[in-house]
């Protein structure tokens, strides 16, 4: 199994540290050799940085990619935003020698070079492909059959499909299987693949629009009677956790890593649910 460097990003360590501790514990329980990738900055977030300039976005991303390359690890993301940003910048730098040359010109200012070899992975995809459902199932101690889960994939875990090559982004199964291996039931709901509403800088700029999206998602989630939302992105996590103020029936939110803490029977306090706006009482 590949050695991985955990890329923390911004929202996980700064807003939901429980996702970080849960991920560390779950990877350890599954026998994955993981270290936190040190010295990284924001991925950088494409909604903001790619809007300023593609070159800036690629150069800042390449610095993070070069760190993983230097340390000889694959980059493991627990956030769809970081995964999307780093997948796309690394793809462009791998496919286009001109872009790589330009980026290395910039990186030479800080004595760094990126060779274009970093591998960018997502926590859920890594668990599915490298660890495998069977091995995860063996680790499940507490069946979560009381959970009726609204699975939320988010946008940048599977899209663009040609680049990610993980699963069909419009009819995916991967995350449902990763959830159901714990004994929980994934319940289908309307517009399941729809965005949470937060991305692209929309939450920060026009919160009312982000809220409209979330409220619509929540209507669909409540219609099928789900009692928990499971995501694989701390930004979607934040949007669902904080964006349900106006929703009558509030549904608690768990990152996949937190669900696995419950299922594996790891210490519950490691989930860090005190940071959640909607109480988690499982």
């Amino acid at each position: 199994m590949a050695k991985v460097g955990l890329f923390l990003g911004c929202i996980t360590p700064l807003r939901y540290p429980g996702i970080e501790s849960s991920t560390i514990d779950v990877l350890e329980a599954l026998g994955v050799e993981a270290k936190i990738l040190q010295g990284t900055s924001c991925c950088p977030a494409p909604g903001v940085f790619r809007s300023f300039d593609q070159e800036v976005w690629r150069a800042l991303g390449a610095r993070n990619l070069a760190l993983a390359e230097e340390q000889g690890v694959e980059i493991l993301n627990i956030c769809n935003g970081c995964f999307g940003s780093l997948s796309e910048s690394s793809h462009q730098l791998r496919e286009d020698p001109k872009k790589l040359e330009k980026v290395n010109n910039i990186l030479s200012q800080i004595g760094k070079k990126y060779n274009g070899t970093a591998k960018v992975r997502h926590f859920a995809e890594f668990l599915y492909r490298d660890v495998g459902l069977e091995n995860i199932a063996k680790r499940v101690k507490n069946k979560q059959d009381h959970l009726k889960v609204a699975v939320h994939y988010g946008c940048h875990f599977l899209k663009p499909r040609m680049l990610k090559e993980i699963d069909d982004p419009e009819r995916p199964k991967i995350l449902d299987e990763l959830v159901e291996v714990t004994g929980a039931k994934s319940i289908p709901y309307k517009d399941k693949q729809m965005c949470c509403g937060a991305g692209g800088g929309v939450r920060a700029r026009t919160k009312d629009v982000a809220q409209k999206m979330t409220i619509q998602k929540m209507e669909n989630i409540n219609e099928v009677g789900a009692n928990v939302i499971v995501d694989v992105c701390p930004f979607c996590h934040l949007q669902f956790d904080q964006g349900q103020e106006e929703v009558e029936t509030k549904v608690p939110v768990l990152h996949l890593s937190q669900l696995y803490v419950l299922a594996f029977g790891l210490p519950k306090e490691r989930m860090g649910v005190e940071a959640h706006a909607i109480p988690v009482n499982f």
């Binding site: 911004c10 929202i11 540290p17 903001v48 800088g201 860090g272």
Partner: peptide
Amino acid sequence: STIKVAQMFLKTGHAFPISGLTKKMRKEL
């Protein structure tokens, strides 16, 4: 809001503010 995030990044390297609760929680975890 876009400028604010960019300014925060230039100060801290991250696009999200550090809160007191998070600091406390990180210590406990």
